[in-house]
């Protein structure tokens, strides 16, 4: 019998990938969305682009609302159009996401000010 000597992180990784795959099989994610999330998962676990991790964390830190739907879709589109194997592509995506997040935060803070 094989004994697992690895860290729980390894199990967390496979579990995440399984959830993404299961959602795709059930049709709750499209093939492209599933592929994008699996690519992101590998990228984050490999730790090759901490900047991307940070940029995505910053987006997720503040929940969006109906006013940020459009910008959230652009962020999603940016991620889906990024070749995760190309570090140049990833770096470019990080720049775009940071820019979009600034705009997103501005919208959310305007909402706060107007009491929306």
């Amino acid at each position: 019998m094989i004994v697992n000597h690895r860290y729980p992180a390894e199990q967390l990784y496979t579990e995440m990938a399984r959830v993404i795959d299961a959602l795709r099989i059930k049709g709750q994610l499209s093939g492209e969305e599933g592929t994008c999330l699996l690519d992101l998962l590998d990228l984050i676990c490999a730790g090759t682009s901490p900047e991307l991790n940070r940029a995505l964390e910053q987006v997720l830190e503040v929940p969006g609302n109906s006013d940020t739907v459009e910008i959230d879709e652009i962020i999603k589109g940016t991620l889906m159009g990024t070749d995760s194997k190309s570090m140049e592509d990833v770096a470019q995506a990080v720049g775009i996401i940071r820019e979009l997040n600034r705009e997103r935060n501005r919208i959310l803070s305007d909402n706060d000010k107007s009491g929306g």
Partner: peptide
């Protein structure tokens, strides 16, 4: 020349 991670295998299988 693609590193066969679990996620890559799932993508390939799909």
């Amino acid at each position: 020349d693609v590193k066969p991670t679990f996620a890559e295998l799932l993508k390939e299988a799909q």
